[in-house]
C-alpha cells in the first residue's frame, strides 16, 4: 500500500517536473528541474527493477547532460526563451 502510494507519487512528480521543464521561462530553472527529473527517473527505473538503466540515467541522463546544459546556458546570451525567440524573429 505504502509502496503503491510511493509509485503513484513518483509518477505524478515526474509528469509535473517534465511539464515544468518544458513550460519554464527561465532556462536555468528548466535545467535544474531537468536534473531533478533525471534523478527521480533513476528512482523510477529502480522501482521497475532495472538498476542498469537507473545507473545510466543518474550518471548520463541527469549528471552529464545537466552539466552540458549548464555550460551551454553560460554560452547563450539571453537566458529566457522569450528573448531568444524574439531575437530569432527579428533576424528573419
Amino acid at each position: 500500500m505504502v509502496v503503491t502510494a510511493f509509485d503513484m507519487l513518483l509518477c505524478l512528480t515526474l509528469v509535473w517536473l517534465a511539464w515544468h521543464v518544458l513550460a519554464s521561462r527561465d532556462l536555468f530553472r528548466a535545467v535544474v528541474l531537468f536534473i531533478s527529473f533525471g534523478m527521480l527517473m533513476a528512482l523510477g527505473w529502480v522501482r521497475l527493477r532495472a538498476p542498469d538503466l537507473a545507473l545510466a540515467e543518474a550518471a548520463i541522463g541527469s549528471g552529464l547532460t545537466g552539466a552540458l546544459f549548464l555550460s551551454a546556458l553560460r554560452k547563450l546570451a539571453g537566458t529566457t526563451k522569450e528573448k531568444r525567440r524574439l531575437d530569432r524573429d527579428e533576424e528573419r
Binding site: 542498469d52 545507473l55 545510466a56 550518471a59 548520463i60 552539466a67
Partner: peptide, 14 residues
C-alpha cells in the same frame, strides 16, 4: 550484476 561500460564511462566522464 548491474553496471558496465557505459555507467563506468559516465562516472569517468563526470
Amino acid at each position: 550484476q548491474a553496471g558496465g561500460a557505459f555507467q563506468a564511462g559516465a562516472i569517468l566522464g563526470g
